[in-house]
Design a protein around this nucleic acid. Structure first.
Length: 387
DNA sequence: TCTGGGGTCCTAGGACCC
DNA sequence: TCTGGGGTCCTAGGACCC
């Protein structure tokens, strides 16, 4: 906590202000905003199909113990009167854009951390909008007024403290942690409040007698490891982007041919997204989860990056065939593309020509699909006939 | 009618190179 | 006479987050 070392005058000079905004029960709230009849009701997004899980539960539903990531049948048992809705990702993503558009009215420095969470750097906005505390409250009120969505906020000179504060403020609250009071604020909190400390780490820390963040402070190296309060590094990390698609099968599969058909469908989606984002993948990874829940991933780095279904599929199929262990039936298959390049890598002339011709073919396919839907064109997998 | 789907980050070992 | 020491890439797995 750098500012504790500074004199009050310098402090003012270097002070940064971060507002962490976290939308409350985002997907469920969007559904309620779009359909006022759902207001005040136990709305549960996801968990409708047999193997589905809850993606978001309104606070009314949470009263019954429904939580996100909970299997659907369990949620139904806890809250039979719950209103179960399908996951409409596109709609939530549109609302997310509206949320961030509002945040961006208050600062050019807005970092989206997920679809429903972001950090607004309010440093230097005093002259325009007044004191940060006032601005923060105004932003939260504005989200509610313009989008009918409830949000929680945390304001601090440290991003991590701001995030913890926002979580603590939930639902529909705001916590300001004045500079210099961070330790006092954090010390009584249980260690699992720290982002990145999940069940495993929590247990490990408990085993060492560390329950609260205050306990953690007594161990300098552990504090550095889990509670990184340095601000300067933030945002420096190169984003190792990846694009993937996976599915849990209704029935665990035993036949390789059936698996390959699923694999092809997954690949088509991944390929389309790569082309939409105009990136090429150097690494293809296949994920296999067996009925006993054992999960493996196998990856291969390509000599020539690709975004073409046929090439991705060849690699994915090879990985699948080579690694299909005798663990029995497969309950989940996934394909993911990583090590993404946007273009301009060192290509041989042959590769350039091949890539151009593929690009022509696939841009035609993608265009037709956009116009007439995914079913407009289906491409035969190398081994199966599809109508 | 056990346990989704989208990701990121970190670690660790082996290959390979200088 | 035991066989250094980096750096980078690739692969696999696991923890964690929303």
């Amino acid at each position: 906590m750098t500012f504790e070392l500074l004199s009050p005058k310098l402090e003012k000079h270097f002070m940064r202000w971060y507002l962490h905004v976290d939308m409350d029960a985002f997907y469920a709230s969007v559904e309620q905003a779009l359909n006022p009849a759902l207001k005040g009701k136990p709305v549960i997004v996801g968990g409708r199909s047999g193997r589905g899980v809850v993606t978001s539960a309104s606070y009314e539903a949470r009263k019954y113990g429904v939580r996100s990531a909970m299997p659907g049948f369990q949620a139904r048992k806890l809250c039979p009167q719950g209103i179960f809705l399908p996951n409409r990702r596109k709609v939530y993503s549109e609302f997310s854009d509206k949320v961030f558009a509002i945040l961006e009215r208050y600062s050019p420095e807005v970092h989206a951390l997920s679809i429903d969470e972001g950090v607004v750097d309010l440093t230097g906005t005093e002259r325009l909008f007044g004191p940060p505390v006032k601005t923060a409250k105004e932003i939260l009120a504005r989200l509610e007024r313009e989008l009918a969505l409830s949000a929680s906020g945390g304001l601090s000179a440290s991003r991590m403290v701001a995030k913890i504060a926002a979580t603590l403020a939930k639902p529909h609250g705001f916590i300001f942690v004045p500079p210099g009071t961070e330790r006092t604020f954090l010390s009584p909190l249980p260690v699992e409040r720290i982002p990145g400390v999940g069940p495993k780490t929590h247990n490990e820390l408990l085993r060492r007698g560390i329950k609260t963040i205050g306990d953690l402070f007594k161990h300098a190296s552990l504090t550095r490891r889990y509670l990184d309060l340095e601000e300067e590094r933030a945002g420096k990390r190169s984003h190792d982007h990846s694009i993937g698609n996976e599915t849990t099968l209704d029935q665990p599969l035993k036949q390789l041919e059936q698996m390959e058909e699923v694999l092809w469908e997954l690949v088509e989606e991944v390929g389309a997204r790569l082309r939409r984002e105009e990136v090429y993948a150097r690494c293809i990874t296949v994920k296999i989860r067996y009925a006993n829940f054992k999960t493996i991933t196998r990856s291969k780095t390509l000599n020539v990056p690709t975004c073409f279904d046929r090439e991705i599929f060849e690699t994915a199929r090879e990985l699948l065939r080579k690694n299909l262990a005798p663990e029995g039936p497969v309950r989940l298959l996934g394909v993911s593309a990583s090590n993404l390049l946007s273009s301009g890598w060192d290509e041989s002339l042959f590769d350039v020509q091949k890539r151009r011709s593929w690009e022509k073919l696939y841009s035609g396919i993608d265009r037709l699909r956009r116009k007439y839907g995914d079913e407009a064109i289906s491409v035969a997998t190398p081994h199966t006939k599809r109508q």
